[in-house]
C-alpha cells in the first residue's frame, strides 16, 4: 500500500466527516470546526498527490497551494467565528434557531 493511498483514503474520510458534521452538529463552533475538517481532508489529498509525484523533492506546487488554502480557510473561519460571537452577543443563541 502506497502512502498516498492511505492518506487519500483518510482525506476522503475527513471530507465526509466534515460534511456530516456541517449537517449534524448544531453548535456554531462545531459547524466551523466541521468546515475546517473538510478543508483538512482536501489539503491532505493535495499533499498526498504531491508525495506520490515526488522526484528529488515532493511537488512544490500543491504545497504552495495548500499553504494558500490554509490561510484562506483560516480567514473564513475567523470571520465565521466573529459572526457567531456577534450573534451570541446580541441574541444569546448558540445555534441556528430553526435547526431541528
Amino acid at each position: 500500500m502506497e502512502p498516498y493511498q492511505i492518506y487519500g483514503l483518510a482525506s476522503a474520510v475527513l471530507f465526509v466527516i466534515g460534511i456530516a458534521g456541517l449537517f449534524a452538529a448544531r453548535h456554531f463552533l462545531k459547524k466551523i470546526i466541521a468546515t475546517n475538517i473538510m478543508g483538512g481532508g482536501v489539503f491532505l489529498c493535495f499533499v498526498s498527490f504531491a508525495q506520490r509525484d515526488a522526484l528529488a523533492f515532493a511537488d512544490p506546487v500543491p504545497h504552495a497551494m495548500v499553504i494558500t488554502g490554509i490561510v484562506v480557510a483560516v480567514s473564513s473561519a475567523a470571520f465565521a467565528l466573529a459572526l457567531t460571537r456577534r450573534i451570541n452577543q446580541l441574541t444569546g443563541e448558540e445555534s441556528f434557531p430553526n435547526d431541528k
Binding site: I19, L22, T35, M38, G39, A73, S76, L83, I87, F96
Partner: peptide, 15 residues
C-alpha cells in the same frame, strides 16, 4: 444569521 449560513455554505462549496 443569514450571513453565517451563507458563509458556511460558501466555505463548504469552495472546499
Amino acid at each position: 444569521f443569514a450571513g453565517l449560513r451563507y458563509l458556511l455554505a460558501a466555505i463548504a462549496g469552495s472546499m
